[in-house]
């Protein structure tokens, strides 16, 4: 089923537009990866879809209903979770408190959801009383994604989840993201580690100067010579 659809998005940070008609779509149970050169508007597109910056033209549909320029807190209550690239944890809160904050918008018993996150990231259970700011980069990323999972999202949006991680941790993170998809959650992520990301992607988009350049299955994009030359470092 069609989960998210963003059509012909134009917008930016107030000055000149950065996005010039970018479009994406995400279905249930799939990982969608957005790649592209620096400044292509990948992160901007994520923010525009999530309502963090103004969409000047175009529309965003979620489960078929328009949500263009909806405020972030309403996105959360509809089941869309977003993990920014940086500053994505509450450093002075413990791991468990970070996760609890993720569920703030939803009332009710959070225990089962906490258990679900701990089953995806067992390390977080061991360290749940630890202050999140004192953890390693990989662990912080787990906390950030775990916090987003606490709202029981139908759609998870990740902005460069593997930035700054060691190769081993990158593998592990992608493995977890597959696990999340297998829970029935649609995942859309922006990635610099394009090859690895496309390898686990069901579908992918290549963005250039704020608009779609290519879209195909992850495997096809990886096999596309033009894409490989331009964006995947040969």
């Amino acid at each position: 089923m069609r989960l998210l659809e963003a059509n012909n998005i134009h917008g930016g940070y107030g000055g000149a537009d950065i996005l010039h008609g970018a479009s994406i779509r995400v279905d249930n149970d799939e990982i969608v990866v957005i790649v592209g050169a620096n400044g292509a508007g990948k992160s901007t597109l994520m923010k525009a879809v999530f309502g963090l910056l103004h969409v000047r033209e175009g529309e965003v549909l979620y489960q078929g209903k328009p949500i263009t320029n909806t405020r972030p807190e309403q996105m959360v209550s509809r089941g869309i979770a977003y993990v920014p690239q940086e500053y994505n944890i509450f450093p002075s809160l413990t791991v468990q408190e970070n996760l609890e904050m993720g569920a703030y918008a939803l009332r009710g018993n959070i225990r089962p959801r906490l258990e679900k996150v701990f089953s995806v990231f067992p390390r977080l259970r061991e360290r749940r009383r630890q202050e999140a700011g004192l953890m390693s980069g990989g662990e912080r990323q787990m906390v950030a994604i775990g916090r987003a999972l606490m709202i029981d999202p139908k759609l998870l949006m990740l902005d460069e989840p593997t930035a700054g991680l060691s190769p081993k941790l990158i593998d592990e993170t992608f493995e977890r993201i597959r696990g999340i998809r297998n829970l029935g959650i649609g995942v859309v992520m922006v990635e610099q580690n394009a090859k690895q990301a496309l390898a686990i992607a069901d579908r992918g988009y290549v963005l250039a100067t704020g608009a779609n350049r290519f879209e195909d299955t992850g495997a096809n994009l990886l096999a596309n010579r033009e894409v490989a030359e331009m964006f995947l470092g040969g």
């Binding site: 807190e73 996105m75 959360v76 977003y82 509450f90 450093p91 904050m101 916090r147």
Partner: peptide, 11 residues
């Protein structure tokens, strides 16, 4: 700690 993240989180 982090006002922007709090807003994104739905606080």
């Amino acid at each position: 700690d982090n006002m922007d993240l709090a807003l994104i989180t739905g606080i």
